[in-house]
Design a protein around this nucleic acid. Structure first.
Lengths: 345, 345
DNA sequence: TGGCGTTGTGGGAGCGCTCCCACGTAGGCT
DNA sequence: AGCCTACGTGGGAGCGCTCCCACAACGCCA
């Protein structure tokens, strides 16, 4: 265990090679799982690695191999607040689980200003990561296009539009919304309204589509799709309040509401209480997301659950695949949602 | 712009040097802000960097400089669920803000199994990060000691005990609890109970200390500290329920409860409702954390707010300082908490 | 005028890997 | 027997930086 000169203490590849009585190349091949190594050499190298407690130097690897073994998880700062929801931690947990037995590192990148966005673009151009995971992408976000242009592997959580070109993993928003509204109708609700998200978000439009489909396919008595029953929210609680007030004015006879998010449902619930409407007796309510709020509302909110952790896992898996293969085949994955029945309907 | 051979396309230090008409060393000095550079050379280099769009290669830097420019944020997996609270995202936001104009990278490391813990230890030993940020540390966690032993800069969120040796940033749990209970007493409550966290967590003990201090320093009529008014919870909703039931049995005359977390307060609130006690008329309730749950409870829960984002910022700042200076001076920072009054008391 | 420091500078020598070329050596074919 | 193809292997040549030594150029002092 001679520790000569300016040596940092950690064993190097070369030292492993020496100990195993083989060349540097052979050790490298063993580490990287190359098949062109004899069993004898492989065993010797593995023994030497274990004895020395050798851990490859990431930086050297990255420099020589022109890769980084790191992927970035990009979160637009304005969204982080929304992500106080279990949603965010579930996604991260899923990603972490998928990455666990890889030796990929997960870099967390918060982007709050255009300046930081530009800086991150530089990062990308300098190839400081092998791939990028993007959550909460808006339609006008230039980042996905930049990524595509740089031929940087990337996976979005959600999509910007029906024509999304970059790989994505999304939940079945249309199906979830349809199920929620169908449930409301099945329970005998006749005037079912919806509180939507901002129309420039694909996810909001999808949930509205689901609502529309359910309403239109419901047999007689409902009178089909009625725009007066659609109020626009913005995924915030206050937005939910405003929308609910509007709806109450426009259609006082409302007996069911599908809110495109639990937070908006919470806002709507508060307004309903103020207006003296009972939930679910007078007005039934369904949310979307199955967040903690849903469970803690009074009455507990029926909501549409997304397979959040699974989405995280899938995103990571898809990204790793895309990194592994050179050709850039786009993958589009849509995972099923599920209605969680509680007491609000 | 000759692009010879296997060149990756990105300009290198050498190319910048060539363009600026200086040597490699000078460019390096400019980039690293060394003062021993003439203004003329500096200007030339900066121009060349701008023209070429040069971005230093991180891996090469790390390899040559024997550092990584990265810090790890370590989150024990069992905790991630708790961190669905704004707490987690606020901490992250704070860290991100502080790191924004550094070129430190933030690595997210989830640890779920002992195996992964061992692996992370290897990481550390291999010096793949310059420093470590630890959240939600338990008393029996061996990681902080390992970090200390490796002389790896580290900052904990919270502390393991009064004698914590590693640097930490914590909220004033004692003060917050004291304020909460004092408030309860000031509102005329005579029998104020508390639901604690697990006694093997320092944070739980601190909040209990605050409770005790407030009770003991309250003038006559309360009869001082009464162990029958202390029920043990575990920071879960179910634990809050159990504790509340116990309390109701032991001291039916209870008119105030300080729960050491909002989640437990939610559990307690449910039990109180079942028992036909009104909040706050019959029993006043205060939580801790000021989470989303607090705002959404009915009635909205008065709670103790921690300066979460500020804690994140401080953690990052302290860690950067510790990395910058070679000597390992431990820093212990305690940030003030604040009582947020709502409707439950 | 000579010696000394001080300032700015160039560039060699690594950092610890991967890539790849070249070299045995052993087996299969004609 | 001779040749060709594998296979397994060693090690040179980088990857793009930082560190540091050496050296020029310019004062300043005695």
């Amino acid at each position: 265990m001679a520790m000569n000169g300016r040596h940092s203490g950690r064993p190097t590849l070369e030292e492993v090679a020496l100990r195993a009585g083989v060349g540097r190349g052979t050790v490298s091949r063993v580490i990287n799982g190359s098949p062109r190594v004899s069993d004898r050499a492989k065993a010797a190298v593995e023994a030497a690695i274990a004895e020395l407690g050798y851990v490859p130097n990431r930086a050297a690897r990255a420099l020589a191999g022109n890769r980084t073994d790191a992927i970035a998880l990009v979160i637009p700062e304005p969204e982080t607040r929304l992500f106080a929801e279990p949603y965010f931690s579930d996604i991260i947990r899923g990603i972490g689980a998928e990455l666990a037995d890889t030796d990929m590192q997960l870099l967390l990148t918060l982007i709050r200003t255009p300046k930081e966005r530009a800086r991150f673009a530089q990062y990308l151009a300098a190839h400081r990561v092998d791939g990028v995971l993007l959550v909460s992408v808006h339609e006008d976000d230039p980042l996905p296009d930049l990524l595509e242009q740089l031929e940087m592997p990337a996976v979005l959580n959600g999509r910007r539009s029906d024509l999304e070109s970059v790989s994505y993993v999304d939940a079945d928003n249309v199906g979830g919304a349809r199920a929620a509204v169908a449930h409301l109708i099945a329970r005998g609700r006749r005037q079912v309204a919806t509180i939507t998200g901002p129309p420039d978000m694909y996810v909001a439009r999808s949930r509205l589509d689901g609502y529309r489909q359910a309403v239109e396919s419901a047999a007689g008595g409902l009178g089909g799709f009625d725009t007066a029953l659609v109020a626009r929210g913005d995924f915030t609680e206050e937005g939910g309040r405003r929308a609910m007030r509007e709806l109450l004015v426009r259609r006082p006879g409302i007996d069911g509401v599908f809110a495109a998010s639990d937070v908006m449902a919470a806002g709507a619930r508060a307004v309903l209480r103020e207006a003296g409407r009972r939930v679910p007796e007078d007005v039934a309510l369904v949310g979307f997301e199955d967040s903690a709020i849903a469970r803690h509302m009074d009455p507990a909110l029926t909501s549409v659950r997304q397979p959040t952790e699974e989405m995280g896992r899938t995103m990571a898996r898809v990204l790793l695949e895309e990194i592994a293969e050179r050709a850039s085949v786009r993958r589009h994955v849509v995972l099923a949602t599920e209605l969680v029945q509680r007491d609000s309907v």
